[in-house]
């Protein structure tokens, strides 16, 4: 299995038998939510679609998997979402077959999709890799696989001697504690279950991944082996083991 990191996404191309393009956490309609909190911006749904289309053009995938939280409003679907999502999906569907693993924000999303485009909330295995949004316990069929997950919006902050120098979306890769997830334990001859948390595709969101590690808020983040985790940038640059990041583990010490 080969992973291509598309920094113009951020998106991931997973190649084995097939070419699978994955994007996570689009949060379309976020603008109407921000509007309610006093931040008034125009919709950037079109720009997001164009970014996905550019990833599709570059990689010609066999399938596009949306890793949940396609829409932003919960529990209701906002006017903006009603207006924009159907066209958004139609445009992408005309280029490549689609699948959606529904996320916690995707309440009521079914009406915009064909039933066979919807995967189970607990995730699905496609071409050898597991796909899940990341807010629930993944299905046992994902055990022993590389699990591609969204939901956590990882972002990393690099510090140098004087202060924070770079804030960037990031991938967080970690082996999983299978017992914690209720998976059958793989023996030493197999690779074992592992997870890669994708950065959010929505450019307005981001959550410091150190905080996710310190205060895990999902089954996958609670069950990852953080001591062996690694951090990568959107273009696939290996930033280093999580434990080498400035600020990691400071809580334990304090």
């Amino acid at each position: 299995m080969i992973l291509e990191f598309l920094s113009q996404g951020p998106a991931l191309l997973i190649r084995s038998e097939k070419k699978v393009l994955a994007v996570a956490d689009l949060h379309l309609g976020i603008e109407s939510e921000l509007d309610k909190h006093g931040l008034h911006f125009r919709s950037r749904t079109r720009e997001r679609r164009e970014r996905i289309e550019s990833c599709i053009r570059e990689t010609s995938p066999d399938i596009l998997i949306l890793l949940g939280d396609l829409k932003h409003g919960v529990p209701f679907t906002s006017r903006q979402e009603h207006r924009e999502i159907p066209e958004f999906i139609d445009q992408l569907r005309s280029l490549v077959p689609l699948r959606l693993v529904p996320g916690n924000h995707d309440v009521g999303i079914e009406k915009f999709f064909d039933p066979d485009e919807l995967l189970a909330k607990e995730g699905a295995v496609i071409d050898g890799a597991g796909y899940v949004h990341g807010h629930m316990y993944p299905d046992v069929s994902l055990a022993g696989k590389l699990i591609i997950a969204g939901h956590h919006h990882p972002m990393v902050c690099l510090r140098d001697e004087v202060g924070c120098a770079l804030r960037s979306p990031a991938y967080l890769f970690a082996p999983l504690n299978e017992e914690c997830l209720g998976f059958p334990i793989t023996d030493g001859t197999q690779k074992g279950s592992r997870v890669i948390f994708m950065p959010a595709f929505n450019e307005l969101t981001g959550y410091d991944l150190l905080r996710t590690v310190e205060e895990p808020f999902s089954p996958l983040s609670r069950c990852m082996r953080a001591g062996e985790a690694e951090v990568l940038l959107p273009d696939g640059t290996f930033l280093g083991p999580l434990k080498s990041l400035e600020g990691y583990g400071s809580d334990q010490e304090a």
Partner: peptide, 17 residues
């Protein structure tokens, strides 16, 4: 004043690592 490109922040992180 942070460094102008992300590259440099990444490189200094790499050096340290």
């Amino acid at each position: 004043i942070p460094p102008p490109t992300a590259d440099q922040a990444v490189i200094s992180t790499l050096k340290r690592r």
